[in-house]
């Protein structure tokens, strides 16, 4: 599913995003990527989505090499992903339903199926009653749930959530992670970045990767708690 071999990422200004990363993530895994701000979590997600390319080493996502010459392949990977961005990236001037639908319009799906999935996803995140509301009128938490609905409606092979607990208090953050856990389908890989390590204790499921100074290591739950 995800295979990184000796991957490094150095930005044009010389900042090191990732260093010699060796990593395998299998289909259906639930993975938390934790670490302090600026440690390289977002750099890793950027590589996963083909926003950045490895400076050295090789990286494969869903069997496709992440390389600047693989524009079509990267688009194909993105179509199989359900991203939940830190700032949600909802499209203003559109309703919640339109935002969820828009994420599927270019997929090879019949129109009726698109609308069915969109309504169903909004129901699963508890926002069906807000489907006709413009996203700019929704609260921060509601906006986040629309972003999640957009991700799951696509029935992706992989869900990626960047700091979904970022602006939430403890209870709401746990609820958010619970929601993402409950929405996960059997074969879907879920990758969540967070710097709120204390939350992970609250959840049973998931492998933990610790990122620091661009290095990624597996971490036990005890280690995360410490």
């Amino acid at each position: 599913m995800i295979k990184a071999e000796d991957v490094s990422l150095v930005y044009p200004d010389g900042t090191v995003g990732l260093k010699d990363v060796e990593l395998h993530i299998e289909k259906g895994e639930f993975v938390y990527i934790i670490g302090p701000s600026g440690s390289g979590k977002t750099s890793f997600l950027k590589l996963l989505m083909g926003i950045e390319y490895p400076s050295s080493g090789s990286m494969q996502v869903l069997g496709q090499a992440i390389h600047k010459d693989e524009e079509k392949g990267i688009r194909n990977i993105r179509q199989q992903m359900g991203p939940v961005f830190q700032d949600f990236k909802l499209i203003r001037g559109r309703t919640a339903l339109e935002n969820v639908v828009l994420g599927m319009r270019f997929l090879n799906l019949p129109k009726a199926e698109i609308y069915f999935r969109a309504e169903e996803a909004l129901q699963r995140v508890g926002l069906k009653h807000k489907k006709s509301s413009y996203v700019e009128t929704l609260s921060w938490g509601q906006g986040q749930r629309v972003a999640i609905a957009r991700a799951i409606a696509r029935k992706p092979t992989m869900i990626i959530a960047d700091e979904p607990t970022g602006n939430l208090d403890f209870d709401n953050a746990v609820n958010m992670l619970d929601l993402l856990t409950s929405l996960k389908e059997k074969d879907t890989t879920v990758i969540i970045t967070t710097h709120a390590t204390h939350l992970i204790d609250e959840l049973d499921e998931g492998r933990i990767l610790y990122v620091d100074n661009g290095n990624i290591d597996n971490l036990s739950r005890e280690g995360a708690a410490l």
Partner: peptide, 16 residues
Amino acid sequence: RDEIYTLKLLGAPDGF
């Protein structure tokens, strides 16, 4: 540009 970038991240083809 923001909307276009979002659509690109979601994998929308250029034509769309």
